[in-house]
Write a protein that binds this DNA or RNA. Structure first.
Length: 349
DNA sequence: TGGTGCTATACAAG
DNA sequence: CTTGTATAGCACCA
């Protein structure tokens, strides 16, 4: 309830501000780090109790050279272009001059692990590292329940988006050309995410992140500027997204193993494509929630059947590989069953 | 003088 | 009502 949200967010904010202060002060490396709330909680599309938070810690850097490390267009090796003043990051460079995501994440993790001990009145622990994951996960013990906070390290660089994004973000018909142009002037974010397909697993790859743009699109999702404002017309876009998130979450609970490849990002990506396919606010009238949800769901089913869901910002990067055809078919069958039987999982608790 | 960091304030979203 | 975020004003310091 409201009380829980308040308690949880208060607790998370106290812990996170404490950690940010410590990380900034500790040594030169992370002195200009900034907080950015990301993920469902901050996008107002959280479906369950507020027990999961995503916090991006953003490091501004100047002039990076991005080299694609595979054909997805999402993963990059990073090097500093001609001497920037980023001397304080030298200790995170590999032998070949590449900025190491692993080393940087370890540096941040070490400070956080140390600092967590100094937080009074709250029991905070740093969870074991998952290989290749960009997150440092905190667990906050709040007696009846537990809150987990994913801290994601991101680099922010004010330069043009890489070529792989050229034909992505096709929002002209939905949000407009000017909005697209403005988005593309916003900085590039790179998160310390290891590419599993990388030949040598040295952990120095980075992945593009568009969390800042996604958050903006969700909070400003109307074709008409006044969409969902208090004196405007309410639409059902966010409710549709929440419903499919909830459906996937429930199905994942029932079939954890078979559905392990799927995450809410698939659902979110399909959502943005649906917003483009049905760009007008009248396509998402609040009264038509059921019909809209069904169209969105059918779109997602098509993606699964074709094993084809392009990343919204990097069109050549397919999030549903043919290699996982069996998983895609499994989820498609599960969703079809739900669709044809009045969504039984929504009623089971 | 300009950069930095804290606080107050306004306003959006639910 | 609550929380989150952007911004303006202010003191501080090199």
């Amino acid at each position: 309830g409201r009380q829980d949200v308040s308690e949880a967010s208060g607790l998370v904010n106290r812990v996170v501000t404490h950690l940010i202060q410590a990380v900034r002060g500790r040594d030169g490396s992370f002195s200009s780090i900034e907080k950015l709330g990301a993920g469902s909680y901050y996008e107002h599309v959280k479906i369950s109790e507020p027990n999961e938070f995503d916090i991006m810690l953003v490091m501004p850097v100047t002039r990076l050279q991005l080299d694609e490390c595979d054909d997805t267009g999402a993963y990059y090796y990073l090097t500093f272009k001609r001497n920037p003043k980023e001397k304080y990051l030298n200790r995170f460079l590999d032998e070949d001059g590449k900025l190491s995501a692993f080393k940087m994440l370890e540096g941040l993790r070490r400070i956080i692990k140390e600092e967590v001990k100094h937080i009074k009145d709250t029991e905070v622990t740093v969870k074991r590292k998952k290989p290749g994951s960009p997150a440092i996960t905190l667990q906050i013990n709040k007696p009846p329940a537990e809150i987990s906070v994913d801290i994601i390290l991101a680099l922010e660089v004010q330069q043009s988006w890489p070529p792989s994004t050229q034909d992505g973000l096709k929002i002209e018909c939905w949000l407009g050309r000017k909005v697209r142009r403005d988005f593309r002037y916003r900085p590039v974010y790179l998160v310390a995410k290891q590419n599993k397909k990388e030949k040598l697993l040295r952990g120095n790859t980075w992945r593009l992140s568009f969390s800042h743009i996604e958050k903006d699109m969700l909070n400003n999702h109307g074709s008409i500027k006044t969409c969902c404002e208090s004196d405007g017309v309410k639409c059902c876009r966010k409710d549709c997204l929440k419903l499919l998130k909830y459906l996937l979450e429930r199905l994942k609970m029932k079939h954890a193993k078979e559905l392990e490849k799927f995450c809410s990002y698939h659902v979110k990506t399909a959502f943005f494509h649906s917003c483009v396919a049905w760009p007008s606010d009248t396509d998402w009238k609040y009264e038509n929630l059921e019909h809209c949800f069904q169209k969105y769901l059918e779109y997602f089913l098509h993606c699964l059947q074709d094993s084809q869901l392009p990343h919204f910002f990097i069109p050549r990067y397919n999030l549903l590989s043919l290699d996982d055809k069996a998983s895609n078919d499994f989820l498609s069958r599960q969703i079809n069953y739900q669709l044809n039987n009045g969504f039984p999982v929504f009623h089971q608790v």
